[in-house]
């Protein structure tokens, strides 16, 4: 077993302390950690799933537009951050693991350690009330 870089450990510790939903992924998009806030939105529990390969967690919920048309991966902020290493922001609908349709808003940003070490990305997201 190898250890995670300090920056990811601290990011996880930070996420674990937060009420709002947080996702942490490695440079290729594998889901390393999600917190309680994310659990309640996604309808899954980290204690049960553990970390997940990108193809596994991408199938847990289905991102769509308002007409329930599936969104291409590069339309998602976190995917954009993974490919550009830059922050991204956006809103879209998901069907979570409980079958609920939710509008969520996501802000994602890269996790870069010193000096210029790209280690993955963090996404903060929240349910958006449709008015």
């Amino acid at each position: 077993m190898s250890g995670q870089p300090l920056e990811l450990i601290l990011a996880r510790q930070f996420a674990d302390s937060m009420g709002m939903a947080v996702f942490i992924v490695d440079p290729i998009g594998n889901l390393l950690f999600y917190n309680e806030g994310a659990e309640s939105i996604l309808g899954i529990r980290f204690a049960e799933t553990g970390s997940m390969a990108v193809e596994d967690w991408a199938s847990v919920f289905t991102p769509t537009d308002e007409h329930e048309n599936p969104l291409p991966p590069d339309g998602l902020p976190l995917v954009q951050t993974l490919s550009t290493h830059k922050p991204a922001h956006g809103s879209f609908y998901i069907f979570n693991n409980k079958g609920e349709k939710l509008l969520i808003t996501v802000t994602s940003f890269p996790i870069e350690g010193r000096p210029n070490r790209y280690l993955g990305a963090m996404a903060l997201f929240w349910k958006t009330v449709v008015t």
Binding site: G3, I9, L10, Q13
Partner: peptide, 11 residues
Amino acid sequence: ASPDFPNNPEW
């Protein structure tokens, strides 16, 4: 810097 210390060496 150690979530769930000391039960999670990887982290």
